[in-house]
Design a protein around this nucleic acid. Structure first.
Length: 467
DNA sequence: ATTCATGATTACGG
DNA sequence: CCGTAATCATGAAT
């Protein structure tokens, strides 16, 4: 509207300034009569029309409507209209020439690619699951993640749905608006100089506007997907406590291997399988556990007792069974502690260790970690209870003075080991143990990688029992 | 809202 | 590469 009046004003100015309207174009003859009219008469007419047009907006709707009709029927209208059209054509062309050519926006392409890759804008179901599968692969792909992934997928489809509905809405709105504008322009082209090219241009502008809105939509969708990804795939953000069962299993292993809580690769895999977590999660868990246990042993005392006792009872039952079946079951070589390392020890070796524990008569040289774990556990619980008497033979060898020492369960096992006492310390007071602990803890006990080495078992057992 | 517990990450060392 | 120590970030309990 503003454009129109401005243009008309210009036109009126030009005309009223005395320039020939007929210029280079053939002004159609007036519709009816007026043969004898000279230039002054025409100028008068044109000026009149222009004045009416210019003031049309100042009038009331009804008035304007009537005026419009009158103008439409004016005999000079076609002539004036074609002039306006010509001028408009020229300006329109110059405008169009200025901003033609829209190169594919690189950012838009990037967004499109991203959305396609994330499975948001791709084919209905395939893209989503593909992305989810990629996510699964990215985060380890353990069975534990399946729930999270379904959650992730659900969220992704949610985003995708929103995206599609919004996109559709925009598309629809764009189309509606375009047709509306086109109709309007076409309608107005009867009274206003609007060429089809200009309508086209208008449509282009509208589309550009809407596509910029679409880009915003795509951008926000991308952001949403990114947030979703980071939430679900970045394990750090998505910290989930392990299941109670998993923690149980890990704790059992930890406390039954308290003397050397460094599970071998096989043991880690086994634990991972049992707990439905990844091996690295097992490693993390043990890393955290070791450091935190060491930092505040007192805090873990109760837990240690609990698990040690639990495992010890299991072991005791196993021993009892072993004793019963000892005659028939011939001992086999332990499998380096990989399977069932702390739940189902080899009965033969177990028995041997128990004997050594009680009577300091260890002879074997191939004790596996599985057996050692039981020994640790039993010794632990014995230390804690001041003697474990459940068919294992009452044991008063482990002096109760360790009881009130927070680290006593650990120190004898670790520091008491002859492996770190080459000078012949037969027994270490709890305080000394604490110091040993403070000086290096497990690291000084043995080489972590040689968890399954049989050298530690006999040594520690001997050390403890020799007192 | 605050605090504690806990899984993961990072920096660093051997 | 594996371990420790410190730290981050979140979940759960209060």
């Amino acid at each position: 509207m503003d454009d129109q009046s401005r243009m008309l004003q210009t036109l009126a100015g030009v005309n009223l300034a005395g320039h020939s309207v007929q210029g280079g174009m053939a002004l159609p003859p007036p519709p009816h009569g007026h043969e004898g009219a000279d230039g002054d008469g025409r100028k008068q007419d044109i000026g009149d029309i222009l004045h009416q047009i210019m003031t049309i907006t100042d009038q009331s709707l009804d008035e304007a409507q009537a005026k419009k009709h009158a103008l439409n029927c004016h005999r000079m209208k076609p002539a004036l209209f074609s002039v306006l059209c010509e001028i408009k054509e020229k300006t329109g062309l110059s405008i169009r020439g200025a901003q033609e050519e829209d190169p594919p926006d690189p950012q838009l392409m990037r967004l499109d690619n991203m959305l396609l890759a994330e499975g948001v804008s791709g084919p209905e179901k395939g893209g989503g699951s593909a992305a989810a599968a990629a996510a699964a692969a990215a985060s380890g792909g353990s069975s534990d993640n399946s729930i999270e992934h379904s959650d992730y997928r659900a969220k992704l489809t949610q985003i995708r749905q929103i995206y599609h509905t919004e996109l559709e809405k925009y598309e629809q709105a764009c189309n509606e608006f375009t047709t509306h504008v086109m109709n309007l322009l076409r309608e107005q082209s009867r009274t206003r100089p609007i060429s089809p090219k200009e309508i086209e241009r208008m449509v282009g502008i509208i589309h550009r506007k809407f596509s910029s809105i679409q880009m915003q939509l795509k951008q926000s969708t991308c952001e949403a997907v990114m947030i979703l990804r980071s939430r679900f795939l970045d394990a750090r953000r998505k910290r989930r406590n392990f299941s109670k069962q998993a923690t149980e299993i890990l704790n059992e292993y930890f406390y039954s291997h308290l003397s050397n809580p460094y599970p071998s690769e096989e043991a880690k895999e086994e634990l991972a399988k049992k707990c439905s977590i990844t091996v690295s999660q097992v490693s993390n868990w043990f890393g955290n556990k070791r450091i935190r246990y060491k930092k505040n042993i007192g805090k873990f005392q109760e837990e240690a007792n609990l698990y040690a006792a639990k495992t010890a009872v299991t072991a005791a039952h196993a021993v009892a069974a072993a004793v019963q079946n000892n005659q028939t079951n011939s001992p086999t070589t332990p499998n380096s502690g990989s399977s069932g390392s702390f739940n189902l020890p080899n009965s033969g070796d177990m028995f041997m260790n128990m004997q050594s524990l009680n009577g300091d008569s260890y002879q074997g040289s191939q004790v596996g970690a599985n057996v050692q774990s039981q020994v640790d556990t039993l010794r632990h619980v014995i230390n804690q209870t001041g003697g474990y008497s459940d068919g294992l033979g009452g044991n008063s060898l482990y002096s109760p003075h360790n009881l009130n020492m927070p680290r006593s369960d650990w120190c004898p096992v670790i520091s008491g080991d002859l492996t770190i006492n080459p000078l012949g310390h037969h027994f270490l007071e709890a305080t000394v143990c604490s110091m040993e602990m403070a000086n290096g803890g497990w690291q000084d006990a043995t080489t972590p990688s040689s968890v399954t080495s049989p050298t530690e078992g006999p040594g520690s057992v001997h050390s403890d029992t020799s007192n």
